[in-house]
Design a protein around this nucleic acid. Sequence first.
DNA 1: CTAGTTGCAAAGAGTTTGCATGGCG
DNA 2: CGCCATGCAAACTCTTTGCAACTAG
Lengths: 135, 135
Amino acid sequence: MQRYMTQQRRLLLDYLKAHADQSVSARQIAGELGSQDVSISAVYRNLAALEQDGSIRKVSAPGTRESYYQYLGGHCCEHLHLSCKKCGKTFHMDEAQTEALVSTIAKLDHFALDRADTVLYGLCKQCVERKDGES
Amino acid sequence: MQRYMTQQRRLLLDYLKAHADQSVSARQIAGELGSQDVSISAVYRNLAALEQDGSIRKVSAPGTRESYYQYLGGHCCEHLHLSCKKCGKTFHMDEAQTEALVSTIAKLDHFALDRADTVLYGLCKQCVERKDGES
DNA sequence: CTAGTTGCAAAGAGTTTGCATGGCG
DNA sequence: CGCCATGCAAACTCTTTGCAACTAG
């Protein structure tokens, strides 16, 4: 299906790019773009479209109800993602490391790890260091 | 809070144990136990209680709407879980391997991986081999 | 007995969809 | 112009909760 670059799609994409280092929820997006004429349904529909195109990725963090979305700068599934449970930022694991990890697991467990669907949860360096409050 | 072992809790726990090698959804459980007098709310309430006790684990698989639950044979968060996207079974990664993986990531990325919340998705050995239909 | 549990039905939250209108190319 | 996209509101699905009746210990 052909895609038109509407104002809403543009805004959404810009927003996602600007927040490429973290996962954002549909509500957050709608909240910030809502003032610029982007309805919640447009947000969801565009997120779905972008996900299909492989431009973004949808992840569901454990313990949360809503889904989160993150921009994939084109290079999509080459590496695993590290998602910080505290600050919400997403880190991209080095390709070489990813490769090593994936093949290690493949050898040990005969398990073909899927880079696209696997997210590793934990705490990033910063959040480990200052173990207390902040977003 | 004290827990009573009601008939419903017993049935639910038995069901989870019997399906310990795969993730099951609340709907599946309610569907099968519904005929034995277990309401959907009891299912959810008990799942929540059992999760709190650390007896089971709740995971949200990418691309699905509902949450899935899996029995943890007591030894809870020592190892990472491998979840097969095709057959739905959950495999427990060897503790030593888990340890190695976690510390490797800690070294390379300064990232404190959370064993409780991380699930690795992919295809298990069997599903990789017979790449076609079956559940 | 008494605190925890249950079923039911209603409430909530997040997400999806039908429909008529509006806009990109 | 034609097809795609939008906004709105209603529909849906999964999950949670209030309440009165019930049961395990």
